[in-house]
Amino acid sequence: MKVTHFRHSCVLLETDSARLLVDPGVWSTGMEDLRDLDAILITHSHLDHFDGDRLTALAKGNPGAELIADPESAGEAAKLGLDVRAVRPGDAVELAGAVVDVVGGDHAVIHPELPLPPNVGYVVDHGAFYHPGDSLFVPEQKIDVLGLPTGAPWLKLGEAVEFYRAVAPRVAVPIHELTLSEAGIAMAYRRFDELGPGGARVEIPIAGTSIELT
């Protein structure tokens, strides 16, 4: 599995057969000119995960890519004139030979008075990579590489650590970091190293560069 982090929640996952882009949002950069994508996946409709302008441009530049999204994001994408497939927890889709299981369903609570969109997570190739979106849902699959949320209005550091421990991946790639200052990001990464599950390691790719996780 090759992983490229385009800042915040946007990652490109390259399996043996497929190129999958997840959550091209407004705070992510460097993915705008990607081509030869097999699919674009959206976890939920918040702007840091779903940017209509970028999504439209990516769909135009990758006419063969299938667009996969939670039901609310799918509705928004359809309004943009995009061909989109809505998925729900329990669904499984095959994308250029890669199997993606849809899990979760609920966005983490920000505040009891704030409405929340549906949120789905994506488990790629039976656990090779897990992107939870804005949730701390622990899937039933054994996860090899976890996209680990680092900072958010719905998250405190201790919760991120406990999620990391509960999923217990071989490797954690921190994502969803741009709600924090540089100092806050660095502190979170140190805590992940110190407090993560035994045998796991944290890999922090430079934005826009790929790392091979084997």
Rank of each mutant, 00 (worst) to 15 (best):
G184S: 10
E182N: 08
P153W: 01
A39E: 06
A128R: 14
A59I: 01
G184E: 06
G97K: 04
R88D: 04
L178C: 04
L12H: 05
E94N: 15
G184T: 08
G61F: 04
L37A: 03
R7K: 10
D106V: 13
G97V: 12
L148P: 07
E182L: 05
G75E: 12
G127K: 09
R191I: 15
S210W: 02
L178W: 04
N119W: 02
G75Y: 03
H46D: 11
L114N: 12
P117V: 06
E32Q: 15
S17I: 05
H44I: 04
A128V: 11
A172L: 01
G198Q: 14
I204N: 12
S135T: 09
A57N: 13
P115D: 14
F192N: 05
D125G: 00
T15H: 11
V26K: 09
G196T: 08
P24L: 05
R190S: 10
G90V: 07
R7L: 08
P89W: 05
P63K: 13
D91G: 12
V109F: 02
T4Q: 09
A168Q: 10
V138M: 04
P118I: 00
G147T: 06
E162Y: 02
P112G: 05
T214C: 06
T150L: 13
L157C: 02
G208E: 10
L95W: 03
